[in-house]
Amino acid sequence: MTDRSRLGELIINRMKEVLGVAMDKEVAEYFGIKQASVTNWRKRGTIPIEQCIQLRQARGVSIDWLLLGIGEGEIDENYVSGIEDRDYTEVPLYDVEASAGNGSFFDQEQISSYLKFRNDWMTREGLHQKDLAAIRVAGDSMDGTLADGDTVLIDRSKKKPDGVFAIRIGDSLRIKRLQKMADGSLRVSSDNPMYQPEVIHPENMSQIEIVGQCYWRGGRVF
């Protein structure tokens, strides 16, 4: 077992201890994710920082202990009882991979879990709950900016290029960098240089739907 794989194994074991479970599928069920994601944490030595923060907030366990094994894995009841839900806004995290076909990408039945963001942060950033949705990144086309498995917060009120956006082409949801060209066409590119950019000409603009701007990311630490 490599050092990175060992790191993932240790973090998963500490999660199981906090949750009082013994199997990977039970960890996955708690977080509302697929069991394969937990397997990948172990295999790749991924640090599931988003889930560690979730456990910190929900169970009051030390982040240092979860990630590094430093200190004790005791529950800080004062921390848990001190968290006021009114200080946070919940944003739905969607399992968009389940949305094949022509339906909406953001249906209630596709919500896998919720992310909490502090209200004061959202106010500073000018974000509004009604405009927000979160999805996970799949694939390597945006490597350098977004990694496979990252979580992205989408602001659906922002649809004017330029920048990184969630877009819909046909029945597929993609995350790409968009640039409006002088002739009215739209350049659709990946940050991974292995992928060639596309150009959508003005007469074909109906083929693409800009879902919203990718505003925030959360993911593993390399």
Rank of each mutant, 00 (worst) to 15 (best):
M1G: 15
T2L: 09
T2P: 14
R4T: 02
S5L: 00
R6P: 06
L7H: 05
E9I: 03
M15T: 12
L19T: 07
A22Y: 04
A22R: 12
A22K: 15
E26H: 05
A28S: 08
I33K: 05
A36L: 00
A36G: 01
S37T: 15
T39Q: 10
W41H: 03
R44A: 05
I49M: 07
I53V: 13
I53Q: 11
R56C: 09
Q57T: 00
Q57R: 13
R59L: 12
G60E: 04
V61C: 04
S62A: 05
S62G: 14
L67R: 03
I75F: 13
D76V: 14
N78W: 09
Y79I: 06
Y79G: 13
E84S: 14
D87R: 10
E90Y: 13
V91K: 01
L93K: 11
L93A: 04
V96S: 09
V96G: 01
E97L: 08
F105K: 01
F106Q: 08
S112T: 08
K116W: 09
F117S: 03
F117A: 01
R118A: 05
R118V: 15
D120R: 13
T123Q: 12
T123W: 05
A133Q: 07
I135Y: 02
R136M: 11
D140L: 01
S141W: 02
D143S: 08
G144D: 04
L146I: 06
D148P: 12
G149A: 02
D150N: 12
L153H: 07
R156P: 12
K159R: 15
R168F: 10
S172F: 14
L173F: 08
L173D: 08
I175W: 00
I175Q: 04
K176V: 13
R177H: 06
M181G: 07
G184S: 05
G184A: 07
V188C: 00
S189V: 02
S189A: 15
N192K: 02
M194I: 03
M194E: 08
Y195H: 11
Q196Y: 02
V199A: 07
V199G: 04
V199K: 03
I200Y: 12
I200L: 15
H201Q: 13
N204L: 12
S206W: 01
I208A: 03
I210V: 15
Y215H: 12
Y215V: 11
W216K: 07
V221W: 02
V221I: 15
